[in-house]
């Protein structure tokens, strides 16, 4: 994309959706995911339609990876374990083939389908199987593809809840009810969230 042309887009314009050719904003992780859905040696065409497709795909993966924590280990199933191992070896095979990220991502979609079946109970696996799946997500999705599991859909909710918690704490402090305000701060601390008091009010720092 030539910088001198009118259609050139700056990364920030994608993230805040301010470019006139864009229908909406996209998170950095969705854009990164979109880029990795093409091989680095191929030309990549940005379009509203393609970006929306990647956003949908990215959310589908993250949603299914989130479900993993809710899967209860059951009896081991040799076929399921084999399917998991096949996905892992395919991921390695594709990355070894000149860093083929689109094919690696296709394997992760297979993994998501499998997780969803384990989640709804139509398939079962034991703890070893669940751990293996977790390891594939960590290795390929997070460490190699460099994706962050961000809960795009929930971020507004978390922010809203935190704002509410800070309001409650401020009310307690205004009433000199320090027992309550300290309890809020300590509970947040246990959740790895630091509340810092500054001149312009309290600020939240996520330490996770």
């Amino acid at each position: 994309m030539s910088k001198s042309k009118n259609n050139s887009i700056l990364p920030m314009e994608l993230i805040n959706g301010s470019h006139h050719l864009l229908d909406k904003a996209y998170s950095a992780m969705v854009v990164r995911f979109f880029m990795l859905q093409s091989h680095y040696s191929s030309e990549l065409d940005f379009s509203n339609e393609a970006l929306k497709g990647s956003e949908k795909g990215f959310n589908r993966l993250v949603e299914s990876f989130d479900r993993l924590a809710g899967i209860k280990p059951k009896d081991p199933n040799a076929e399921v374990l084999q399917a998991i191992e096949k996905i892992e070896s395919n991921c390695a095979m594709h990355m070894n083939d000149d860093f083929n990220t689109p094919k690696t991502i296709a394997e992760l979609f297979e993994l998501a389908t499998l997780i969803n079946k384990l989640y709804d109970g139509s398939l079962t696996t034991d703890q070893a199987g669940i751990d293996k799946i977790q390891q594939i997500i960590q290795n390929y999705f997070i460490d190699i593809l460099g994706m962050k599991i961000e809960k795009a859909a929930n971020s507004g909710l978390v922010d809203g809840l935190m704002k509410f918690v800070l309001e409650l704490r401020k009310e307690a402090r205004d009433k000199k009810d320090y027992a309550t305000s300290d309890k809020i701060r300590d509970t947040m601390k246990d959740l790895n969230i630091t509340i810092k008091d500054g001149k312009d009010g309290a600020e939240v720092v996520y330490n996770g």
Binding site: M1, I9, P11, M12, R32, M35, L36, I144, G146
Partner: peptide, 24 residues
């Protein structure tokens, strides 16, 4: 001399994959 554009970014993301995979 100007803000990095999307084409630059794609190149650095591509080589980030190379960097990450070699480390892996």
């Amino acid at each position: 001399y100007s803000e990095a554009h999307l084409g630059n970014l794609r190149t650095y993301v591509s080589f980030d994959i190379v960097h990450r995979y070699l480390k892996f």
